[in-house]
């Protein structure tokens, strides 16, 4: 299975560089996982094996990091991973209704990916933009803030979702 997973030459070069950037090679795990995700959209188990070899670190330790941090997708997600904040200030200002509206628009449930593989919608915890509630983040892009269901759908359309 490991043979089916590969990374770009630039990606591997990036990882090698991160290995020398910090005081311990372990610190390269998070940036490397981000890099895998940037290239593949998610982090498959085979990537952990590859990183184990590339970083020369135990796979179990890499896997611990992978599963601890919620920004890493351990399952495939759509091209547009829509993450709507539904923590307290956003919930007070329509974050949950926004999620529902987006789910209805794309015909998916929370946590699911649309049939065409384009869109995944998730609720997330506070993203630290409570004064612009409700808000959301698509993939790892800049925040989309002060949303209404209509404005959110419009913005997503402009992005191609």
């Amino acid at each position: 299975m490991a043979s089916t997973f590969s990374m770009s030459a630039e990606g591997l070069a990036f990882i090698k560089k991160e290995l020398t950037r910090y005081e311990t090679p372990y610190s390269a795990i998070i940036p490397s996982l981000f890099r895998v995700q940037a290239e593949h959209g998610w982090v498959p188990p085979e990537a952990v094996v590859l990183l184990g070899k590339t970083l020369n670190l135990p796979e179990a330790h890499i896997n611990e990091v992978l599963y601890f941090y919620t920004m890493f997708n351990t399952k495939p997600v759509g091209k547009f991973h829509i993450q709507v904040c539904t923590n307290i200030s956003c919930a007070m200002n329509g974050g949950r209704e926004l999620t529902q509206a987006l789910c209805k628009h794309y015909g998916v449930e929370v946590g699911q990916t649309s049939a065409d593989g384009k869109v995944t919608i998730n609720k997330v915890e506070c993203l630290g933009s409570c004064d612009t509630a409700p808000m959301m983040q698509v993939n790892a892009d800049s925040y989309l803030e002060n949303l209404t269901p209509e404005s959110a759908i419009k913005k997503l359309k402009e992005m191609g979702a």
Binding site: N87, I88, S89, E125, C126, G128, S129, C130, D131
Partner: peptide
Amino acid sequence: DEGEPGTFKDR
């Protein structure tokens, strides 16, 4: 690592 819900001043 500003994560306390309601906090955004550091960002």
